[in-house]
Amino acid sequence: MVIDFILLFFVVVCAVASVSMKDLLGSVMILGAYSLLMALLWTRYNSVDVAFTEAAVGAGITTVLLIAALSRTFRHEEDPEKPGQSIFPWLTRIARLIPLGVVMLTGAVLIYGTLDMPNFSDPAAPANLHVAPYYIEKSVPETGSINFVTAILASYRGYDTLGEVTVIFTAGICVLILLRRRFHG
């Protein structure tokens, strides 16, 4: 319980640090730490498979991709000085506050939405009562896999995984097409 709270606290600190840092390489490094802390948190929430994937893919591959992109572009965030001068400076100052207002409003609406939700770790939550008991009871006799997550991923929801592979394939082709260098003579 206390560990959960400490982890959540550090996750939020990492997110704020990562967003506010001017040095993009540092920002990406902190994002890696953020992903790893997230994996720890998910281990605490009993989702070992997801934590493993996040530690490998989220903290590993995403960080590598971001660093690779930084090495091909520019390491530092440019100054927020906007090149276009405005006739009314106070108008630009107000315009900078608009994103903050939008974020606050969205957050308030989401928090209002949580008031109707079942409490955290409630065993009688509707999400835990519908189809999940079937998977837990039947996956061993029907698929023979003692890991229920594997059973659902590869058997009951196999088409999801097929779609996932399609997405990765499409993304790979997109990256190849975008980063291909053409040589004109």
Partner: peptide, 22 residues
């Protein structure tokens, strides 16, 4: 623990990385 959200998020993590790459 309910295994169904785990499966959905396993798929979503990989899709998220694809989005980041593109």
């Amino acid at each position: 623990t309910n295994p169904l959200p785990h499966v959905l998020i396993l798929t979503a993590i990989v899709v998220g990385v694809s989005v980041t790459a593109v």
